[in-house]
Design a protein around this nucleic acid. Structure first.
Lengths: 221, 221
DNA sequence: TAGATTGTTAATCGATTAACAATC
DNA sequence: TAGATTGTTAATCGATTAACAATC
């Protein structure tokens, strides 16, 4: 059973799913990939113990994570691989096409657009934008780099559900604002700035420099 | 004052710095970047309150994080920007040259090697390796793609202190093993596998697909 | 039936935030 | 001096792990 919390909105009880913690959500794709691998290998049942050993995670944590979304396993048996895979896809919204708007056609942007093209069927970069005149019009895979001004009008015909920001720090907030105006409420930001967004927008920031610098801490003397 | 823990090794008291939590370490580069920005803007003092507002972090957290490493601030005044910047560089080992071995000259590898070249002075990709014969010998920036077999011998002349794995999942563990044999004890892994390493090796794994898929969870219905 | 494994509650561990004495 | 801000302890919050009844 999933956990529910009741909410009162203007006298009407609105049932809303309990907020799942970010740490749990970030593990879901790891589970998904693993059961997909198992599926390909023709294995049709897996226990939390086996998954834990392979993924280097605590079996109790895996069971607890999955149990937030339903009762997917069978006691004494484990999880049916195909069923779990399908359920995880549903939970992660990977059962539909996800159109991503990518702004920034520099090295990183190009790598990202090539990368996602090969890795995901359902997540695809559907628009690649930049500001630099020398980049606009160039071809990246099957995409043509478009002027950033065009994003807002494109968003009227293509339903972008995710945005990726791959521009320099100074331009990131502006790009972010455009995305929010376009109705993009989920954003992956590679610029080293903390973006200001309305509460309903979900931003994750990550950047190479921060990553490398924090790892440098662990270099032995 | 930094916190110390005493350890008994063969009857001799060895003072060892208390292990700093990963969450703290990951915030340090964010502080560093901010004070570097302030320095460039000619500002010479900053309070935890001001930093918190800008970086979207709790001021108490910033003070506590910094206090693990020493008393860097002045009560009633704040932190001296230049001093804090220098201290953070020391803590993160960014006061020395860091040679990175990058394995995998695909789109991601190329983007990374271009990226780090522009962003960091002290962290530099000093060797770029791949297995594919059609990639070996090609030029990426000022680097020539070398055969992966050469990494072990190169490691005898260049002291690689970090490794980046940008190869497909199936090849990642093997590359990781080579790095560990080369004395590389800090590894950033972009392949979607959980790598098995000896306890003294520090690995951080991140990958685009997992990142995008977990974000997809937040797409509104 | 006996062994295995889930779903879930309770216990533990770790990280964040609040509060405040010390002091610039 | 009065106001500001640190460093640090205590309180809170959240995430992980252990334990176990239920049951396949």
């Amino acid at each position: 059973m999933s956990t529910f919390v009741g909410d009162f909105v203007k006298g009407v009880v609105v049932m809303k799913e309990a907020k799942i913690s970010p740490s749990v959500v970030r593990r879901l794709p790891i589970y998904l990939r693993h059961v997909q691998d198992l599926q390909e290998a023709g294995i049709d049942t897996v226990s939390s113990k086996e998954m834990g050993a392979k993924l280097d995670l605590n079996p109790a944590q895996i069971r607890k994570d999955l149990a937030y979304f339903g009762e997917f396993g069978r006691k004494g048996v484990g999880y049916e691989v195909e069923y779990l895979s399908r359920k995880l896809e549903q939970i992660l919204h990977l059962d539909r096409q996800i159109h991503v708007a990518l702004v920034g056609a520099g090295h990183l942007g190009i790598a990202l657009s090539n990368y996602t093209r090969f890795q995901n069927e359902c997540i695809s970069i559907s628009g690649l934008y930049d500001r630099a005149p020398d980049k606009i019009g160039t071809q990246v895979g099957q995409l043509t780099v478009l002027p950033i001004e065009q994003l807002e009008s494109d968003a009227k015909t293509t339903t972008f559900t995710m945005g990726i920001i791959a521009v320099p720090a100074f331009a990131a907030q502006e790009v972010c604002d455009v995305m929010v105006r376009c109705g993009i409420h989920v954003i992956l930001n590679f610029a080293p700035v903390s973006l200001k967004v309305p509460a309903y927008v979900h931003v994750r920031s990550t950047d190479m420099t921060t990553e490398l610098q924090s790892l440098a801490y662990y270099i032995p003397e």
